[in-house]
Computed example of a mutant assay.
Amino acid sequence: MAIDQFSLDMLALAEENVMRGKITRREFIRVAIAGGLSFASASSFAANAANAVANQSRNVKALSRRYDYVIVGAGTAGIVVASRLSENPAAKVLLIEAGGWNEVKSVEDPALWPTNIGTAASYVYPYVKAAHCNGRTIPLAMGRGIGGGSAINAMVWARGHRENFEKWAELTGDSSWGYDSVLAIYRKIENWQGDPSRWRGERGEIFVDKDRHNNPIVPAMMRAAASVGIPSTDDLNGQTMEEDGGCGVAQTLIKDGRRYSIANAYLYPALSRPNVTVLTDSTVIGIELTGDRATAVRLLHAGAEKRIEASTELVLSAGSVATPKLLMLSGIGDSEDLRKLDIRVAVHSPNVGR
């Protein structure tokens, strides 16, 4: 019996829900058979999903004191790094996250994304009062929990313009930051649902689609833009990013009416790998150095302090605020600033936190 794409998507969603403990194996098998799978195939899918849950439970209970790679922060960057590194079955990878699994309706339902701000799924950092903001304190919200910012943002997929990347390449003296190099990466990671073109990828992990709401304001805005000389475009992330810009329909990371975060794209498919451990609700409080090399972290988990070593590499991907904060608390930063806070200086690095 042939299975259409919608049924395949529903099966993938059901399999993910088994991994997250939201439905039982029996319930999954019932959904899978209704979607066109045989009992044997449905049972195999269910077993794979249940194996991912059991694997993570087993790995966390048997938490090691040393891993090849320790990654701090399960946001967009940390998840991708963990997924890619763990493709090597010989590499033991630990992914540490201060928040939880973000298994709440406000994260999954695209329409509810603004309600995540100020909840357990986010950090809210206040700026100091700024004269150019009329003395106001503007809060900065950042993701907390599996998926990081990709679990609470507005799900818009917006690439940078050619000029942005060319400027990065110029500033760094590294052509790999240039537009052509970055475009190749975009094409590799995208699973674009629109018309094919040389600017888009169709076989990647990240599901990208045009917004499907058909809000009447959209064509009205496009006509208004055209009336003042801003051209319309069918693909805001295509050729437009090499030209002077344009007005078009936003592209989003929404699949089957649900948020499609970086965790959906990269982490959930990796949870059954025996060499991957995801440790949630764990706050890293310090980095330890051996000479000039970061070799271990200290963290709080389940009410106890633990020390875990990274034999190959320690990766910090805790966000643009928490990463420099952790570095400074570990004595890595401007020596004068650290001494004012009675923090022992390990490495004088004046650009940290600036």
Rank of each mutant, 00 (worst) to 15 (best):
A2M: 12
A2Y: 11
I3N: 06
D4R: 13
M10V: 05
L13C: 01
A14E: 01
N17K: 14
G21K: 05
R25V: 09
V31N: 00
G35C: 13
S41E: 13
N48W: 08
A50R: 07
A50V: 09
A50C: 12
A52D: 04
N55P: 00
R65M: 06
S86R: 00
N88P: 03
K92D: 04
K92G: 02
P110C: 09
A111I: 09
W113M: 04
T115F: 10
I117K: 11
V124K: 05
Y127M: 10
Y127N: 06
K129Y: 03
N134K: 14
G135T: 09
G135W: 08
I146F: 02
G148V: 01
G148M: 02
G148D: 01
A158D: 05
E163P: 00
E166H: 08
A169N: 08
T172P: 01
D174C: 14
S181A: 15
V182C: 02
R187Y: 10
R187G: 06
E190G: 04
S197M: 03
D209V: 14
N215A: 15
P219I: 11
L236D: 02
T240C: 10
G245D: 15
R258P: 03
Y260I: 09
P274C: 07
G286I: 06
L289H: 03
T290N: 11
V297A: 06
L300W: 07
A304F: 13
S320H: 08
T323W: 04
I332Y: 01
D334C: 12
E336H: 10
E336P: 00
K340P: 00
D342L: 08
A346C: 13
A346N: 14
S349D: 11
N351F: 13
